[in-house]
Every structure is written in structure tokens, then in C-alpha cells.
Amino acid sequence: MKNFFEQQQTNKRNSLWLTLLFISASIFIIWLTQWLIGSISDKQILQQLDLILNQGWDIFRQQYNNQFDWTISLIVSLIIFSAIGYKYNQLKQGGNIIAIQLGAQLIQPNTYHPLEKQLINIVEEIAIAAHTTVPQVYLLKHHSNVNAFSAGNSSKDAVTGITRGALEKLTRDELQAVISHEFSHIVNGDIRLNNRLTACIFGISFIGLIGEGLINHALHNSKWLNNKNNPFGFTALIGLIFIIYGLIGTILAGMIKAAICRQREYLADANRHTI
């Protein structure tokens, strides 16, 4: 069993790992931007057009080095970081906001529903076992599968929740195991790591999301059948460019998520038994 300090060490290492992965992803995106836009907006191309046409691209590159375009890099990193800041601030408001965004409903501690009462009891029991405050309990009423979540920024404002399927299908002991798993996430500080992770991922896949938004906008607003100017095509084209450009971010985001989350799940499973 890991003690608290080793645990903290692991947490720090994970956060560091996350930061490294994220920075390399950002650098990769910026480099890609340079490669795409930088080579188009390079002024030397226009100046030396004759050279390129007569002797070819390779000769041109040998004579004039690729110039690093600071403006573009700055704009891209600004977009990424403001997206991260926006998302992190949103998540920092506490677990309740996240739970409500998920579509969950708060269970009142004095509920009369027997199953809900049982759930509240289990959460209070595990809180005693885990030496933490009792989190608010949420129920995802419209999910018939078996699943559970915990969210928040610290163990003070943490919430936990389960789906209706889990509430109805699991026995008391099984539910206790699920809830203690979620508690390990809270106690290990995974929920905070998760907030950071979500914010970072939102940042690097933001460009792709802009593209999706543009296409959606174009689809819903276009009256292109009776509009000669055809705004649909233009917006959608821009959107498509953004998506393709943001694709690299989306893929990297998926990889980071997979790398960190799986590890945390194993840890929570291991830690459950100590609670």
C-alpha cells in the first residue's frame, strides 16, 4: 500500500507528465502551423518568384532559409491558452456545475425513495471510512447503463453520482464497491487532475471544435437553395479547413487522455481496497 506522501509524489509526477505531453502537443501544432501558413505567407516567395519558377523550390530553399513567423505562432498559442483558461475557470467553479452540465439531478439527503436513501447511506458510510467530508450525491436519471462519476476541484466541493441503471441493478454491496472506487478518485486528487486534463484537451482540440461549429452553423443557417451568394459553401469550406488543421490536436488530445486516465483508473481500483 502506498502511503500519503508516495501518493502525492505519484500525483505530481502525473501532473508533470500531463504538462510535458501538453507542451509537446502545442509545439507540434505550432510547428504544423508554420509549415502550412508560414510557407504561404513567406514574403521571400513573392520576392523570389522568378527563382522558384526557373530553378525549382529546392534551390530556392537552399538559398533562402525558412523564416519563423512569430505572429502566427503567437496567435495560435494565444488561441490555445485562452481556450484552456476559459475551460479551467468553468470547471473550477466546483463539482455541482459539472454534474449539472452532465444532466444529473441532486439527491436530497432526506429523500423518501428507498433506493436513493440507500445510496445516500452508502455514501455517508464510505465518507466515514475515507475520512472525508460527505460529497453531494447526484443521479443521472436518464442513463440505464451502469456507470458512476465523481467531479470537483478538491474534496471540499467534490460531488459523486451514479446512473439510474447502477442504482437499480446493483446490490448494496456492489454499489458500495462502486462508490468507494469513486471516493478513491476524490481522495487521490484525480478529480483535480481531471479538470486540468479536460482544460488542456479542450485547448488543443479547440481549433477542430471551431471547425465543427462553423460547419454546424453553416448547415443550420444556410438558405443556399435560394441564395445566389451561396454562403454555405464558403463557411463550410473554412470549417473543413479548420477541422483538418485541428485534427492533429484532436488526435493528440485523445492520446493524452488515454495515457493518463487508464493509469488513474488502475490506481483507484487498487486504492479502493484500502478504504
Partner: peptide
């Protein structure tokens, strides 16, 4: 249910 829960709480405490 209350008794079961209380017994669990006692054992954890």
C-alpha cells in the same frame, strides 16, 4: 436499511 448502514458506519468508525 438504516440498521445495516449504521452497522457499517460503526465498523468504519
Amino acid at each position: 436499511e438504516e440498521l445495516t448502514s449504521t452497522e457499517n458506519r460503526i465498523s468504519y468508525a
